[in-house]
Computed example of a mutant assay.
Amino acid sequence: MSAASDSSRAPSLPAAVVVYSHRAEIRDAVRTAVGRRPAADVGPITWLECETGEEVVATVDAGGVDLCILDGEAQPTGGLAVARQLDQEVADRPAVCVLIARQPDRWLAHWSRAEGTLPLPIDPLTAPGVVADLLRAHAQRPVVRR
């Protein structure tokens, strides 16, 4: 397959992204940093906000979610636990990115099976690129059946 045909498969369709945190200011910071279209070949994004881990699971179970951005510091259920739960319970789960407060917590993100991490506070210069890369990778992966 040529590079030209690879780029033609880039996800140009709208993307549904869940952002989870019990803190509205974290959800707002993520939406603001990433924007509605993180890259020319990705999006536009429809943001789905969740305040609880149960809301995340229900939203993902309903289908149509391409990416979950989960606050690792959320209370009472952290985004790392929610990511792990999605990995264990959802056959064709969306891509997952975990917000981490400390770089040493990257191993926890790996344990949770998250494909990406973003440090807190959210950096508007790097967040769009991470989100775009995760959406591209999710669009290219085969459907997994468990």
Rank of each mutant, 00 (worst) to 15 (best):
A15E: 00
A15G: 02
A16G: 07
V17T: 01
V17Y: 04
V17K: 01
V18H: 00
V18A: 01
V19I: 11
V19W: 03
V19A: 06
Y20R: 02
H22W: 08
H22D: 15
A24S: 12
A24C: 01
A24I: 05
E25W: 08
E25T: 11
E25D: 13
I26Q: 02
D28F: 03
D28R: 09
V30Y: 00
T32F: 06
A33T: 08
A33S: 15
G35A: 07
R36A: 15
A40D: 14
A40M: 11
D41E: 13
D41G: 07
P44Q: 06
T46G: 07
W47H: 05
W47N: 06
L48T: 13
E49K: 06
C50P: 09
C50D: 05
T52W: 11
G53V: 01
V56G: 01
V57N: 00
A58V: 04
V60Y: 05
V60S: 05
D61E: 14
G64D: 09
D66Y: 04
D66S: 12
L67V: 06
L67E: 06
L67T: 04
C68L: 05
C68H: 04
I69C: 03
I69G: 00
D71E: 05
G72W: 00
G72L: 00
G72I: 00
E73Y: 05
E73I: 01
A74P: 01
Q75G: 03
Q75V: 13
P76W: 10
T77Q: 12
T77W: 08
G78A: 03
G79Q: 02
L80M: 11
L80V: 04
L80F: 12
A81C: 02
V82F: 09
V82I: 15
A83Q: 02
A83V: 00
A83G: 10
A83W: 00
A83E: 05
R84G: 11
L86P: 03
Q88A: 15
E89Q: 15
V90W: 05
A91K: 09
D92N: 15
D92L: 08
R93E: 03
P94F: 07
A95T: 01
A95E: 14
A95I: 04
C97M: 15
V98Y: 02
V98A: 07
L99M: 12
I100Y: 08
R102C: 01
D105W: 10
D105H: 14
D105C: 02
D105E: 15
D105I: 00
R106T: 14
W107C: 11
W107S: 13
L108I: 09
A109H: 10
A109M: 08
W111R: 12
S112M: 09
S112P: 04
A114R: 07
A114M: 10
E115D: 12
E115W: 11
E115K: 12
G116L: 10
T117A: 10
L118P: 06
P119T: 13
L120Y: 03
P121W: 10
I122A: 13
D123C: 07
P124I: 13
L125W: 05
L125N: 13
T126Y: 07
A127C: 12
P128L: 14
V130T: 14
V130R: 10
V131G: 04
A132V: 07
A132M: 08
A132F: 11
D133S: 14
D133N: 13
D133L: 13
D133R: 13
L134H: 08
L134I: 03
R136H: 11
R136I: 06
R136L: 07
A137G: 08
A137D: 08
H138K: 06
A139H: 15
A139M: 03
